[in-house]
């Protein structure tokens, strides 16, 4: 066909190339307009100078940033031991709720009550009640640590959500997989362990990634019962320097971690949608 003149492109390819160029131009132009508007218009607001001084103060940021990073290690630590505990407990609750044997009926009830309670109470309330309540029993020294009981509050709350996601994953495995596995002579337990769960877990990886990101942020709630993690540390700087910039610094540190994680979760989600099609 008439490929010669446009460097070997077909009629359709030439058209699509032209369309792509057009789209990129429009996108670039509209982004530019928005940026200009922000840079020009926001500083025209009457309180801009004050806001700039108390929220975007370079000197304060430089001074507080290293210590904020230090405090963030505490967030990472709490996250690091809570996340595996949540995965295990969440899976156990999910399995308990689907238990079929009558002897395990109490477990089913318990699983249902557990998810109802801990999904129904705001995280901050659970952190307060467990974080202040249990040490109030007068436990001896390492056992009255807010790290332990604060982490437990996070673990309980997040397990309830994670359990529900696992259950959705178990339901998402087609029942014909169960039939096939049973027809081979496998027991209900073996069917669950070898056939259903591996597929269920894979199906919910993107959703669970989102729970991890949420957990990473909610670790900061423990600051209310004691641990000087990043949010609390930013508060200390705020009082010390009479300036809000440390909070912005804390937000930046969170974003450095959460943005790649969010992008990765989105990528997994998109890949899964493609595979399902």
């Amino acid at each position: 066909m008439a490929n010669d003149e446009a460097g070997g492109l077909s009629r359709r390819e030439r058209y699509e190339k032209q369309q792509r160029r057009r789209s990129s131009l429009i996108a670039a132009a509209s982004t530019l307009i928005v940026l200009v508007a922000l840079v020009v218009l926001v500083p025209m607001a009457p309180g801009w100078e004050k806001v700039q001084k108390s929220f975007f103060n370079g000197a304060v940021l430089a001074k507080s940033f290293p210590k904020l990073l230090d405090a963030f290690k505490i967030n990472l630590m709490i996250f690091a031991w809570s996340a595996p505990a949540i995965a295990v407990l969440g899976l156990l609750i999910a399995l308990a709720r689907d238990a079929k044997s009558p002897a395990l009926f109490p477990l089913r009830i318990f699983g249902a009550a557990f998810t109802d309670v801990f999904r129904g109470v705001p995280v901050i309330l659970t952190v307060y009640l467990i974080g202040f309540g249990i040490p109030g029993l007068g436990l001896p020294r390492p056992w009255n640590s807010p790290y332990i009981w604060g982490s437990l509050a996070l673990i309980l709350t997040y397990s309830a959500y994670v359990a529900e996601i696992f259950r959705a994953g178990i339901d998402s495995v087609h029942h014909s997989q169960r039939s096939a596995a049973l027809s081979l002579g496998l027991s209900e337990r073996q069917v669950m362990r070898d056939v259903i769960l591996p597929q269920a877990v894979r199906n919910v990886v993107p959703s669970q990634m989102n729970m991890l990101i949420a957990l990473q942020k909610d670790v900061s709630l423990l600051s209310f019962i004691g641990p000087v993690e990043i949010f609390r540390q930013a508060g200390v700087f705020k009082s010390l320097l009479a300036n809000f910039t440390p909070y912005v610094g804390a937000a930046i540190i969170f974003l450095i971690v959460t943005i790649p994680a969010t992008r990765y979760a989105d990528y997994l989600m998109a890949r899964q949608t493609r595979e399902r099609r």
């Binding site: 014909s176 049973l182 027809s183 081979l184 002579g185």
Partner: peptide, 21 residues
Amino acid sequence: DPQSVRGRIGMVFQNFNLFPH
């Protein structure tokens, strides 16, 4: 107990139902 019987009777399904993982 159906398990012992199912081992003696094999079944193949319309949609294969292989384990994808």
